[in-house]
């Protein structure tokens, strides 16, 4: 009898890392849906609409990348906490840019904290490449909102706890 092939996928990372990546995925899925809401509202019709569309697309890319890294069984749920914190603000023309800036800062802080816990170097490297761009998003959004230099450089957001 020929040897039987083991077709079970080899996990790329530990269960603990999987939980952290799943948490990051939920936060990014929520961010993408929040940007979709903003883009579909009057906020997206303004002159900053193309910039918001660009950032929305970036968050979609993060969802796809994290999903690909996680592999089969990746969670598809949005983070309810992230949606609840920002949903009403991102469609308000007077507050949307500042709300999205805050969202980006929270995401960057959350992912940075995850990098401090992830054992997998591949996963940490991917999340790090997301953090440096989300920090850019936040700085640009602060500028678009005329919030000033201190706001653009403010990195004091508290990370979400997985």
């Amino acid at each position: 009898m020929p040897p039987r092939l083991d077709l079970n996928p080899v996990p790329q990372f530990s269960d603990a890392d999987g939980a952290l990546l799943g948490f990051a995925l939920g936060a990014e899925t929520a961010a993408h849906s929040l940007y979709e809401s903003a883009a579909a509202s009057t906020v997206g019709a303004g002159e900053t609409g193309p910039a918001l569309a660009l950032m929305r697309d970036h968050h979609r890319a993060y969802v796809q990348a994290l999903n690909g890294l996680y592999g089969e069984g990746a969670p598809t749920d949005r983070s309810a906490a992230v949606v609840a914190a920002f949903a009403s603000r991102v469609t308000d023309p007077a507050d949307a840019l500042l709300a999205l800036r805050e969202l980006e800062n929270v995401l960057a802080a959350t992912h940075t904290a995850l990098v401090g816990r992830l054992e997998s170097v591949d996963a940490a490297a991917l999340v790090a490449s997301i953090v440096t761009t989300e920090a850019r998003h936040a700085a640009v959004l602060a500028g678009l909102a005329n919030a000033g230099l201190d706001a653009a450089l403010d990195a004091s957001a508290e990370p979400l706890a997985p």
């Binding site: 960057a108 761009t133 920090a135 653009a152 450089l153």
Partner: peptide, 9 residues
């Protein structure tokens, strides 16, 4: 991330 903000600004 701070350096990244600098670059963006």
């Amino acid at each position: 991330a701070d350096e990244s903000r600098h670059a963006a600004l």
